[in-house]
């Protein structure tokens, strides 16, 4: 009985470990996505400028 309730805490702790890291990786990925978006915008801007000059 004692052991099985222990198991819950063990499970919760390792779940927490992965959940926190997973959340952090998701955060990094969303930042990466924002970054890619800005790069795309800038690429568009650059091609517009080039077309304007031509």
């Amino acid at each position: 009985m004692e052991q099985s309730s222990n198991l819950t805490y063990l499970f919760a702790a390792y779940t927490a470990f992965w959940a926190v890291l997973f959340g952090y990786v998701l955060h990094l990925m969303s930042r990466q996505k924002d970054l890619n978006q800005s790069i795309e915008e800038m690429r568009k801007l650059a091609s517009e400028i080039r077309r304007g000059q031509l």
Binding site: S5, N6, Y9, A13, A16, F17, V20
Partner: peptide, 21 residues
Amino acid sequence: AELGVIFALIVLITGPLWARP
């Protein structure tokens, strides 16, 4: 700094889960 905070957070969550039983 970011990773230090993340790992400290893990310590602060897993610690109490160990302490409870």
